[in-house]
Structure formats: C-alpha cells, structure tokens
Amino acid sequence: MLSLENTATPAATALDELVPSRYALKVGDIDVLVVSDGVLPLPTKMLGHNVEPSERAEWFEEMYLPQDAFDWALNVMVVRSGDRTILIDAGLGTDPDLQLPRAGQLIRRLGASGIDLTEITDVVITHMHMDHIGGLLVDGVKERLRPDLRIHIAASEVEFWKSPDFTRTNMPQGFPDALRATATRFWSEYGSFVHTFEDEHEVAPGVTVRRTGGHTPGHSVVRLASGGEALTFAGDAVFAVGFEQPNWHNGFEHDPEESARVRIALLRELAGTGEMLVATHLPFPSIGRVSADGDAFRWVPVFWDF
C-alpha cells in the first residue's frame, strides 16, 4: 500500500542506493509519490538546438553543469485518489541499446516503496516516447498487472504513432528508430487496455488529464486538485532550461514552435495560481512552483518536508 509516511528517508535503502529516489506528499486528500526512474545522459544540445552554441554554453556555465552532456532526471508519479491507484507514466524500462544504463529503475523502486503492481488500477501516459512507456514492457510486468487495468492516452497521440513524423526533431542517432519500435511494441501488447480521450478526462476524483499537444500531438498533463490544493504533472512540456529560456527548442519536440507556446501558457497559468509543478525531466523530486519574471519564469523548488 502507498504509505503516507515520507519515504524519502532511506531507512531500508541498499548501500548502492544512497541517493533518495522517492518522495511522498499530500495534495489535499490525494496521496502522491514521486519516484525516480533514474537519469538519461544526453547531449547538452538537446535543450536548445535552435540557439547558438555560445548561448547554450553560457547557460550551462551559469548552472554549473557540464558543457558536453549531462543527466536528465526521469520522474514518475504514483497517485491514490479514492479507490483508484494511478501510475502517471512508466519510465524507460530496459535499455534500448542507446547507452542509457542508469534509467529503467521504476519497477524495482516501486517494489522498494511497498507498491505492488496489482494495486495499480489506472495508468496515464502523457505521451508515447519510450522513456514514458518502457517500464510496462519489462519482462514479467504485464503478467503482474490487473486484467481490468485502464491505460489513458489522448486519441491524437495514438493516431500519431501509427506513422510518426520525426522531420522537425533533433535527436541523437538511433533515437527515432528506438522510439518508433517501442511505441509499436507498446501498442501491440497494451492496445486492448487503452482508453482514449479527446481533450480532457477525469481519471479519478480530483485527477484530470488534459491534452496540450506540442511535444507530441497528443502530449498531455495531469492535474491533481483536492482540499484547495493543486499540483500539475507536466510531462515533457517543461525542461530545466524552459523557465529562463521558454523559447529554446528541445530536440525531442515534434512541433517546436507549438511546444514553446504550450510551455509558456502552462508556466503563466501556474505562476498565476501558485500551484505546484512536477515534470518528468526536472531535477528529482522536481516539486516546485513557478513565478513570472518578465517574459521569462523562475522555478521555485519546495523545501523538503521530513
């Protein structure tokens, strides 16, 4: 069962897990657990391929980050609302021959958190990139899931992956083929579990998934709201550089200009409401708020609650 106790405390952590990999919080009456699936080492160009290398270098220098490649966090959420236990995205799974050995930790870390896969009633997929669906393809996982599991994906996302267009992306070699193959395998194995929605769908009390588009045509965000509190899981709509440089194009974006519009609108919305934000690739546990700073934004991480 998902404990209300903050499982960031490494009481039962193995010696090779000295860095916390899960963090619990409450959003009103909704229980939330942010789980790290590990990290993805990627070229720094991936965070802004539409700007001069000197501009990127300046940002990375100011952030004390390496200039050639750095580790993207990979965060997943487990949410309990009423009688529903919802997995929001599923991590990378096994390494698709792309030298990503430090990701794909989700299934093991769910077990270490005391979460049995049979508890999961719903899965929300923000989009069908391999680092969001691959955990469901790990050997032995499907057999442990409930036969009445519901997987929620925007209809336009499903349609896109029937014949995906990578012409406007800027990915390292091998990634388009791996993304395409993983999406195809996912649909083959889980198509009968998928329930699509057009623009917005309530998964459970206070848990709503909304299509934004941009990053992929069916990219979606998930908003939790209960007891006057709210949190948005933004998937890949927001990256670390996107607060100060919201118009920088990410290499995985299938429509970079629309992605920037979606990002700016979402950040303005969150800056206006003061609600919490979690995103897939913000530094773990990625929980924070957004403040507006002229035409840019500022990410304000929450103080950890022990």
Rank of each mutant, 00 (worst) to 15 (best):
F233V: 06
T208Y: 00
L179K: 10
P205S: 00
D199F: 00
Q173V: 14
S226L: 01
G218Q: 00
V241Y: 12
A240V: 09
A181E: 15
F193A: 13
A225F: 12
S226H: 08
V238W: 03
H201T: 03
T184M: 14
W187I: 15
G214H: 08
H195F: 15
E198A: 07
V209K: 00
E200M: 07
F175Y: 14
D199K: 05
F197P: 10
A183N: 10
F193I: 09
S192R: 13
G228K: 08
Y190R: 08
H215D: 11
N170F: 10
T167A: 13
G235P: 11
P217E: 13
D177P: 12
A240Q: 15
W187M: 15
H219D: 01
A225W: 10
G235T: 04
T196I: 00
F175H: 14
P172F: 07
E198V: 05
G214M: 03
L179A: 12
D177H: 12
V207W: 04
P217A: 09
F175G: 13
A178I: 06
F166I: 01
G174Q: 05
G214N: 08
S192P: 11
R180H: 11
V194F: 11
S163V: 07
T232S: 00
T169E: 05
K162S: 06
L179D: 12
P164K: 04
Q173M: 10
S188L: 13
F186V: 00
R211A: 03
F186D: 01
Q173R: 13
F175C: 10
T182G: 10
V207C: 08
P205I: 03
V241P: 15
D236C: 07
G214D: 06
H195M: 13
R168S: 14
S226P: 12
F193H: 15
T216G: 12
E189N: 07
H215W: 14
E229V: 11
